[in-house]
Design a protein around this nucleic acid. Structure first.
Length: 210
DNA sequence: ATCCCGAGGG
DNA sequence: CCCTCTGGAT
């Protein structure tokens, strides 16, 4: 992969998809942070279905910090991994209220130190929440980075390094959103629709899938 | 490397 | 039925 090819790919993808809005429904950093933790290994639709009840009952970090785990579990059950996620978002809320005075921190090291937030979630919060350039690599981005030839690795950090070295910093957030959208619309894990793909002529994977 | 763990699609 | 979904902690 070289920068010229990378630029052509993203030009075509942006022309096809536009600049997508984040698909998680949230208002403010509290809801974004909680939604991102809940989004692990589940679809945004599942998260968006559960969060209205959650945020109605616990409207901020301070309220969620005092929640009973069992109550939270019942509300978020449909998102999967609900024992872990319930514990994480309550512990996260306690950490933000106690350690950070109720304000979500904007440094990656402070974010990843919070319960339930690893590098991918921190990058989503940085880029979408704070407007800080970051390229979050989730399952879609990792798969597409491999198919397009940015990397040959199952390590998300490798993919992040490859993508950020090829894509201008100002486009990292857009690249993340475009690749997510592409992964859902056409470049699916199971039955990718290479026929209809705007970058099929630039993709080795598409060429091998007639 | 392994566990967590529900729901939708093919 | 098996695979996949905006991963993280141990």
């Amino acid at each position: 992969m070289d920068r010229a090819l990378s630029a052509r790919i993203f030009h075509l993808l942006k022309k096809h998809y536009g600049v997508p809005d984040p698909s998680l429904r949230y208002t403010g950093l509290y809801e974004l942070a909680v939604s991102v933790v809940l989004s692990a290994q589940t679809t945004d639709a599942q998260v968006n279905a559960a969060t209205p009840a959650l945020f109605a009952r616990y409207p901020d970090f301070a309220r969620l910090a005092r929640a009973r785990i069992g109550d939270v579990e019942r509300i978020i059950k449909s998102t999967g991994f609900y024992h872990n996620k319930a514990r994480n978002i309550v512990a996260l809320s306690r950490a933000v209220t106690q350690r950070h005075g109720g304000e979500l921190p904007s440094a990656r090291e402070e974010l990843t130190a919070l319960p339930g937030i690893g590098r991918k979630s921190a990058n989503v919060i940085l880029s979408i929440g704070f407007g800080v350039p970051a390229l979050a690599v989730d399952t879609h981005v990792l798969r597409i980075a491999n198919r397009l030839g940015y990397v040959e690795s199952d390590d998300p950090l490798r993919a992040e390094e490859a993508l950020t070295s090829m894509i201008p910093r100002a486009d990292w957030t857009t690249a993340h959103l475009v690749l997510i959208t592409h992964g859902r619309a056409l470049c699916a894990a199971r039955a990718p629709r290479c026929r209809e793909c705007p970058v099929r002529t630039l993709c080795a994977y598409a060429r091998n899938n007639p």
